[in-house]
Every structure is written in structure tokens, then in C-alpha cells.
């Protein structure tokens, strides 16, 4: 780049003498302050859209993973029983109860998260307590390798594996083509780690929630 030459010369001649430390600190503080103001205002401006979108995605996901469900209710686990609670509270895990038009409980949508191949995978899966089966799975957030690991939500065949899946004794990922048992999932060829991560996250969710749902449901 031809413009590189003359660096420093120009600034020195422009400023003449060394600026005081105070001036340096003031410049940086001012820049930081302005930057902070801009960021906060953009954050405030976009936050409603972002949270609304996330909430909508979550609601849609609940209907996605539970068939025949027309309404859902957020449930939290407190003092050995499930209670309805809409307000989110930090550090408090929740599941979503899904109900049909008559108000009868169909199943639960259980959110669970865990490490994937690159970053945390957050997913939601539908669970029917009656038949002890998983009937749907939706990845809410993941940073898996595009084109490969992202098949955990783009590959219809893989997602379809979770439409009718027994949870006992536990869900297992096996090589494609060898899965036959009711609790086995065909892993995606070339994305075994991501596939296994999904299965592990579901098992972790099961370990946390299934005893509670069976007791309190």
C-alpha cells in the first residue's frame, strides 16, 4: 500500500508537541462513553424485537415437538411439585406442558442444553409421559459446523428419528443403518459428534425431568 509511508510524520507535525496524559485519558473515556451510549441505545431499541422473536420461536417450538397441542403452559418445579408460572426467573429451569383443545395434558416440552461440537446446543423435545416416548425434537440454538453439524436440525431424516423414540433405558446414537431398537437414533454420517451431543443432551434432560414429571405429573 503506497499510503503507508509517512506514518507518524504527519501526526507529529499536526500536533506539534506531546499531549498530556490527561488528554489521552479524556479522549479514551469520551470515546468509551459515546460508544457505551450508542450500544445501550441500540440494545434497548432491538431488545423487544429480539426477546419477542425468541419467545415466539420457543412457543412455536413447543407446538412443533408436541403433536395435537393447541395451548402450552410454562411449568416450574418447586417443592416437589410442578406449578404453573409464566414469569421467568434466573436459574430456574422450566418445562412446557402441552394441552389439547379440551384442556387435557398431552405431554411436556423439555428444554435442555449441553456442549456440542463447537458450542452449546440448546434444544427442546416433546415427551409423552403415558407412553414414555419422545415425539419431536427441535434445535433452538447451535453453532455446529454449517453444512455438516447443522444437519442435526436441517436433516429431515435425523430430526425424524426423534418422532417416535423410546426413552428407556436411555437414548442411544448408533451408526446410520444399524439403528433398529426403539431407543436408537441413526447418527448423521460425518457429524457423529454433533449427533451424539444431541442424544446426550436429551438423556441429560431426561435424567433431570423424567422422575419429576412422573412424580408430579
Amino acid at each position: 500500500m503506497s499510503t503507508d509511508s509517512g506514518l507518524g510524520l504527519q501526526s507529529a507535525s499536526r500536533q506539534g508537541r506531546e499531549p498530556t496524559s490527561l488528554r489521552l485519558i479524556l479522549t479514551l473515556s469520551l470515546a468509551g462513553l459515546l460508544s457505551g451510549i450508542i450500544i445501550v441505545s441500540v440494545y434497548e431499541a432491538t431488545l423487544p424485537t429480539i426477546t419477542a422473536y425468541q419467545a415466539r420461536m420457543l412457543r412455536e417450538a413447543v407446538f412443533q415437538v408436541l403433536p395435537r397441542v393447541t395451548q402450552s403452559q410454562r411449568l416450574v418445579w418447586r417443592d416437589g411439585t410442578l406449578i404453573a408460572k409464566d414469569a421467568e426467573e434466573k436459574g430456574e429451569a422450566a418445562v412446557f406442558g402441552g394441552y389439547d383443545a379440551g384442556g387435557n395434558l398431552v405431554g411436556y416440552a423439555i428444554p435442555s442444553a449441553g456442549p456440542g461440537f463447537q458450542d452449546t446446543i440448546t434444544l427442546l423435545y416433546g415427551y409423552l409421559p403415558g407412553s414414555r416416548k419422545i415425539v419431536g425434537m427441535e434445535v433452538l440454538d447451535s453453532r455446529e459446523t454449517p453444512g455438516l453439524g447443522d444437519k442435526i436440525y436441517k436433516d429431515a431424516a435425523f430430526v425424524g428419528e426423534f418422532k417416535d423414540l423410546a426413552v428407556d433405558p436411555e437414548v442411544r446414537a448408533v451408526k446410520r443403518g444399524t439403528g433398529s431398537a426403539a431407543n436408537e437414533v441413526d447418527a448423521i454420517t460425518g457429524a457423529t459428534i454433533s449427533s451424539k451431543a444431541v442424544v446426550r443432551i436429551i438423556n441429560e434432560g431426561n435424567a433431570r425431568w423424567l422422575p419429576r414429571l412422573d412424580a408430579g405429573g
Partner: peptide
Amino acid sequence: WIPKQVRISTYVIIIATFVTV
């Protein structure tokens, strides 16, 4: 208005602001 001693830091603040936006 940017003193040359802190110019890189200032640029980074400016860039980071736009990236966050």
C-alpha cells in the same frame, strides 16, 4: 481530535461500537 498515542485504542472502540450495533 485523536492523539496519536491512543489512536489504535480509539479506532478499536469505534469499530467495536459499530460491530455491536
